[in-house]
Design a protein around this nucleic acid. Structure first.
Lengths: 208, 208
DNA sequence: GTCGATCCCTAACAACGTTAGTTTGAGCCT
DNA sequence: AGGCTCAAACTAACGTTGTTAGGGATCGAC
């Protein structure tokens, strides 16, 4: 046993961090493992299977600290924050996850945690699962945009001026908000959107 | 003038619809235009620029029916539904959009519409723009998942059984919700999440 | 009728994912 | 100890990808 799946996945994440999704090629990954590229096909049937395995490890630590009697609000917040942290842990993490559509045990467990908490709070099963996926979809969309923006880096800097000018000339409301658009404080933006969702869920709960 | 940018973009969308994002290659696209692949590089500096241009056309019809005095709730709902419709209009549309991070005039106009409506409703500029982007991010995340699921097609059918079994054995809450997970009625799921966000925004509005 | 801009061509390169077929090497059985 | 097995790697190659270099063709304008 010289190299097994786990080591390949770990090396793939490391390579992704320094080379990005476009730089994650089978040959370079093989070289990082001191191996020839075709040898990777013993461990995985193809590159997509490798990406699936990577995506699966991403969410393996989400919602680990929660118990079955946690109130729904901390559950929703913790899962959302855990998930975002997981996506951000590696470069292009959200895109890797979005490109795979594996319904693995981990994703099932994460869903189960949120759905259970919302069910205990009084939501009907269907509503509970729909609400859970709404939160998950929001986190995915947000982090994709976040990583896309931070990846651009310098490009936005030179564009910012033109953007401000265009907004001021023709889109007055956005003009006042261009600063918010270009705002790099994603933590606060994420927290705000999450609170919006929590408030929306709360409004749907049965009166008590 | 034999072929110009607009025709290339249109042909690219048509090719995407029948071949998917992986099948959208410069050579095949060129052949569809009765052209050789390198000729495309006169119109676009590279493939990414073509994808950027495609993404831009996607949102060009969003929020066109709205006026500056529309109440905020119809504005939010219409923009969200328009945006989802735009993403779904072409195969892999959401992934194409997510892969590009152009802040074009169109995206600015869409943002402006929502931000303006929320501002008139009483939200502070920063909150209005944050809320607008929360809605946009939700739509993006939702449609990416939606198109990923519908693209899989047959695969999920054979997996559904194993998923149900695993859920029943170990994740009881999700078990009751597996049907909701596998539910193909994305329209209702989307509407539910959107209502969650609308309710969340409403809760943040100043009392009156 | 020429000139510049526009549009397209052929030829080729390096890199990609992947397949085919072969060889190595450790662990177990007898 | 010797041979078998099978996991894990190898070399060589195929077809395709995005892209570059450099050279023609077609067009309106003067």
């Amino acid at each position: 046993m010289r190299i097994q799946r786990e080591q390949v996945v770990a090396a793939a994440w490391a390579l992704l961090d320094e080379a990005g999704l476009e730089g994650l090629t089978m040959r370079v990954l093989a070289k990082a493992l001191s191996i020839q590229a075709p040898s990777l096909y013993w461990h995985f049937p193809g590159k997509q299977a490798l990406l699936d395995a990577m995506a699966d490890t991403l969410v393996q630590d989400v919602a680990r600290t929660l118990t079955a009697d946690s109130p729904w609000e901390p559950v929703v917040r913790t899962v959302a924050e855990d998930l975002r942290r997981a996506f951000l842990q590696h470069r292009d993490g959200a895109r890797v996850y979005a490109g795979t559509f594996v319904v693995s045990e981990h994703t099932l467990r994460v869903s189960d945690t949120v759905i259970g908490a919302l069910g205990r709070a009084g939501l009907k099963p269907q509503e509970a699962s729909w609400a859970a996926f709404t939160v998950l979809d929001y986190v995915l969309g947000f982090t994709i945009e976040e990583q896309g923006f931070t990846a651009q880096g310098e490009v936005t800097a030179e564009r910012a001026g033109a953007l401000r000018e265009l907004a001021r000339a023709r889109y007055p409301h956005a003009a006042g908000a261009v600063e918010a658009i270009l705002d790099r404080d994603f933590d606060r933006r994420f927290a705000f959107g999450l609170e919006l969702l929590v408030a929306g869920i709360r409004a749907r709960l049965p009166a008590r």
